[in-house]
């Protein structure tokens, strides 16, 4: 199966007596959005961190583009084309929106070792950054400080920075959180188009968005994948309804 971009096999992580991940095996295929849902504390963020490399699993492997990257650092995986957006915005708050996007472009160029030429004078970097801001609808705010952005706009900037990397796969931790109705709608239609560029591993609480977007859904409960399937299958799965979705869905 060479349409698999990203996969985990038997991923296990314990924090003391707590198992945050139990034997998680799933994959992300070309052109799809694979959503991971689950109640609070189900281990979604821990899972994401292991996929991206900021937490090392106790057991199991992560494969990216056909390569075992389990032992590689966050940087190695980023350079290989894995782009992450954080659940809690990780932005350089004192810097402008444009500078934040520039950082992404700089990462993509892999060469921050330029000391005397102004970054804003580098057409290629600036173009790349502005293009990404344009796509997430932040062009008008390029000269604002990141700290002046609303919560929702910060989420958009998170995604914008990920875009500057022209990645092979996205890992997004709750990009809709705090976006509001209209913002959610916009982000949903944006991600819907984005999957053509690169598949998205999406952790999200907004069920409406998940059901609208996901090609496949995995349900994580107490660190364990209790079900994986299409939207219909997950909706119909009695075990999932019981464990997580509740009767009203």
């Amino acid at each position: 199966m060479n349409n698999i971009v990203l996969s985990t096999k038997g991923l296990t992580k314990h924090f003391g007596a707590l198992s945050a991940s139990k034997n998680i095996t799933l994959d992300l295929r070309v052109g799809e959005i694979h959503a991971i849902i689950g109640p609070n504390g189900a281990g979604k963020s821990t899972f994401i961190s292991q996929v991206c490399g900021s937490i090392k699993p106790d057991n199991g492997t992560v494969h990216f583009l056909g390569r075992d990257v389990t032992q590689e650092t966050v940087r190695d995986r980023a350079q290989a084309g894995l782009a992450r957006s954080f659940q809690i915005s990780a932005l350089a708050m004192e810097d402008s929106v444009l500078q934040n996007a520039l950082l992404g472009a700089l990462g993509a160029s892999r060469n921050p070792w330029r000391f005397l030429s102004p970054a804003l004078g580098n057409k290629m970097l600036v173009e790349q950054a502005k293009h990404a801001l344009d796509r997430v609808g932040l062009s008008d705010h390029a000269n604002k400080r990141a700290s002046e952005l609303s919560h929702g706009q910060r989420r958009q900037l998170e995604v914008g920075i990920a875009l500057t990397l022209s990645p092979k796969a996205f890992v997004m931790d709750e990009p809709m959180a705090g976006l509001g109705f209209e913002g959610s709608m916009k982000m949903t239609s944006f991600l819907n188009r984005l999957r053509q560029e690169a598949p998205i591993l999406l952790v999200e609480h907004d069920m409406e968005a998940v059901f609208a977007l996901a090609d496949r859904i995995s349900v994580l409960v107490y660190g364990e994948v209790i079900a994986t399937g299409t939207v219909e299958e997950i909706r119909a799965d009695p075990y999932v309804r019981d464990a997580y979705l509740g009767e009203e869905l």
Partner: peptide, 29 residues
């Protein structure tokens, strides 16, 4: 030199590394 350094690509990356090292790492630096 310092005034150029602040605005240079290195300056921007360093500035971000001070504020959010995790972000700098996820862009591959």
């Amino acid at each position: 030199i310092n005034s150029r350094l602040i605005k240079s690509p290195f300056g921007i990356a360093l500035n971000a590394a001070r504020q959010v090292p995790a972000r700098v790492e996820t862009v591959g630096l």
